[in-house]
Design a protein around this nucleic acid. Structure first.
Lengths: 138, 138
DNA sequence: CTAAACCTTTCCATTAATGTGAAGGTCAAG
DNA sequence: CTTGACCTTCACATTAATGGAAAGGTTTAG
């Protein structure tokens, strides 16, 4: 698969696929003409990368955790050794992720509460066309 | 409270406090000499901003949700009206947050699994000083 | 064979968040 | 009144992620 094909299948611009290689999170082969060549697994890997980037990971964090995320997918009982180099780094990543889940959950809850209050108010109150409740004089 | 005090109490550089004002997520008063003046609530607000930034929010997202997060804290039954301008934007933020929680949880789980497998392997296997399991010939 | 549609590398631009320094105003302590 | 520690604005630098164009090689279709 050439870079354009992978771009088409993932919706990620060729420019970015080259960038991901540059920062060491994607490792295409090269065919004799110098063209990058990707296998099928690259599709999932790129989608995974996008997902992580959109969730606020940096490419550096991704470089650390991606090998282990992929190793975790293989049903091998004994862990393969890709990320062995820094087990502690991995633990730090893990607690960073946990902190962020926590923040996200707290804020999700606050927004839900706020939205629900608003929706209740909308249901109980005459509203103008723009959805803003009309003040009720009493 | 002047900018240096707030910086000291939050651990956030004055430069950044000015930046947060510039992008509209922090709103100090000005005293007659032109100095920025912050009240006590600014401390929590700044800490909240840091937390959100570190969890991958942009200042733009923060500008959208912060008023409502603060409104949600007040126990007022009827929602105050700060973020009224874009209730739909808020719903989009909410589902974006939910997507991200999802991604984070999936990856937390994968990393936990991987780490646990590694720890088990370490416990069951002779290890060298650097913590890397020694291959056992059989 | 040629033109279109790929691919390559290189370099420059942009946005967000942040760091840093210059040039100058304010204020409190000595 | 002067000095030092603040504060102000303005401007430029940097890093990460991304966009884009230039100049040139390859491949495929006609």
């Amino acid at each position: 698969m050439k870079i354009g094909d992978l771009a088409a299948k993932t919706g990620v611009a060729p420019r970015l696929l080259r960038y991901y290689e540059e920062v060491g999170i994607l490792h295409p082969f090269r065919s004799s003409n110098g063209y990058r060549t990707y296998g099928e697994p690259a599709i999932d890997r790129v989608l995974q990368i996008r997902e992580l980037l959109e969730s606020g990971f940096t490419t550096e964090m991704i470089r650390e955790v991606l090998p282990c995320l992929e190793a975790a997918k293989e049903e091998t009982e004994a862990p393969a050794c890709p990320a062995v180099k820094d087990l502690d780094g991995l633990r730090r990543q893990l607690s960073s992720i946990e902190r962020r889940i926590d923040v996200l959950q707290r804020n999700r809850h606050a927004i839900e509460t706020y939205l629900r209050a608003w929706e209740d108010a909308m249901a109980a109150t005459p509203t103008a066309a723009d959805g803003v409740p009309v003040p009720v004089s009493e």
